[in-house]
Amino acid sequence: MKFNWKVALISFSPYVPLIIIYFLIHLYIVNDVIALFVAFGIFSVLYIFVHYRYAKPFFKKHPELDVQNLEFNPVANIVFALWVVIMVALVLLNLYPQSPEGYILVFAIFYSIISGFKSYRGTAK
């Protein structure tokens, strides 16, 4: 059971600017849903630029850190199942996040933990 911190941080890193953009947009747009759509739109444009400019060359040099080259193993499956059970229990107990940024943060943590436990399968041919 090895947790890859580098992959987890790379998986978590896009969510930080998304939450920051949402907070900045939410200062000017009061409606949560509209602010979330605007934040996702701005984030998508920035993400596409950063992906083609920086991420693609980086992952060509370091394919072991690319999430697309990872696969589920028994530990990642167990963590995934436990996380689903925990989230269902939180929803049933009404302890789920009450705001959009809470959901984004919870999903980011979930995704990065699962990605950290996945194992490297090699590059796709």
Rank of each mutant, 00 (worst) to 15 (best):
A76Y: 04
K60Q: 07
V67E: 06
Y120T: 00
P14N: 11
R53F: 12
P74E: 03
Y120K: 00
R121I: 00
L9E: 10
M87R: 06
F3D: 04
I113L: 15
Y54Q: 08
F3P: 11
I42S: 06
S11F: 00
F117C: 03
A89K: 06
K6P: 03
G116I: 00
I21L: 10
V79G: 10
I48Y: 12
F59C: 10
S99N: 14
V7Q: 00
N73R: 02
Y103E: 08
Q68F: 04
V88W: 06
V79F: 12
N31V: 09
S99C: 07
R53I: 10
I34K: 09
S112G: 06
E71R: 10
L27S: 11
Y47I: 11
E101K: 12
A35R: 00
Y96I: 03
D32V: 10
S11G: 06
F72C: 01
L93G: 12
F23S: 14
V7A: 02
P63K: 11
K61N: 14
I109L: 15
A89N: 13
G102H: 02
L18F: 06
N69K: 09
H26P: 03
L65V: 08
P74T: 01
N31C: 09
A39V: 03
V45D: 04
S119N: 11
L27G: 13
Q68V: 04
A39S: 09
V75F: 05
I48R: 06
I104R: 08
V33M: 08
I48Q: 13
L18I: 00
L27E: 13
V79Q: 08
L36G: 14
D66E: 15
A76S: 15
Y96C: 09
P97F: 05
A35S: 15
I10D: 01
F12V: 07
P74D: 14
F40L: 04
L92E: 13
Y52N: 04
F59G: 01
V67N: 05
I78K: 12
S119I: 09
E64Y: 11
L82R: 11
N31Y: 07
A55F: 14
Y15D: 10
L9K: 04
I114R: 01
I113A: 02
E71S: 15
Q68P: 08
I34L: 08
V67R: 06
Y28T: 14
P63M: 15
I10N: 02
S11H: 01
H51Q: 14
V85E: 07
F3N: 04
L93P: 01
N77H: 12
I21W: 07
A39H: 03
D66C: 07
G122A: 09
Y47D: 09
V7H: 07
W5M: 12
L46A: 11
L105T: 05
V106W: 13
E71A: 11
F58N: 03
V84N: 08
G102R: 02
Y103T: 10
F3M: 05
L82V: 06
L27M: 14
H26L: 02
Y28R: 13
K56T: 14
I10S: 01
Q68C: 06
F3E: 07
F117P: 01
I109S: 08
S13Q: 07
I19N: 01
I78P: 05
A89T: 05
I20P: 07
F80P: 03
I109V: 13
